[in-house]
């Protein structure tokens, strides 16, 4: 089902992932998050931006184990654990945060 962002209609797949990576914007992220019942905070943005940078560099989304470790390294040990990430993204950090970041569903995702 397409989502409406700023008067534009963005195509998504049956699971709600953006069909077109290049159509992502912060506005789109906020709309995607809303659909997931998430109110984007600074902490949410930190993870979403990290995922976008990771994808830009490696052309894949990290698996949750990789995400947790990498976040810990970049943002500090108190954030590099699954409890923290699941609090932000209750339906699975990799899956939900990737969707909000406009990335494809992660390979071997949780």
């Amino acid at each position: 089902m397409p989502i409406e962002v700023g008067g534009k209609s963005l195509e998504t797949d049956e699971e709600g992932y953006l069909a077109n990576l290049s159509e992502w914007s912060e506005e789109a992220a906020t709309a995607l998050a809303e659909a997931e019942g998430i109110d984007m905070s600074t902490n949410h943005w930190e993870v979403v931006n990290f995922l976008r940078e990771y994808y830009e560099e490696y052309q894949i989304a990290p698996a949750v184990r990789v995400l947790t470790k990498a976040i810990g390294k970049k943002l500090g040990k108190d954030k590099g654990n699954s409890k923290y990430l699941y609090e932000l993204f209750p339906y699975g950090p990799a899956k939900q945060a990737c969707k909000i970041a406009g990335l494809p569903k992660p390979t071997g995702c949780v």
Binding site: E57, Y58, Q59, P62, A63, V66, A70
Partner: peptide, 14 residues
């Protein structure tokens, strides 16, 4: 086509 060569650099993370 998608250039997937950068993905090999992520193998270490995995």
């Amino acid at each position: 086509m998608k250039n997937f060569s950068p993905t090999y650099s992520a193998l270490g993370d995995f």
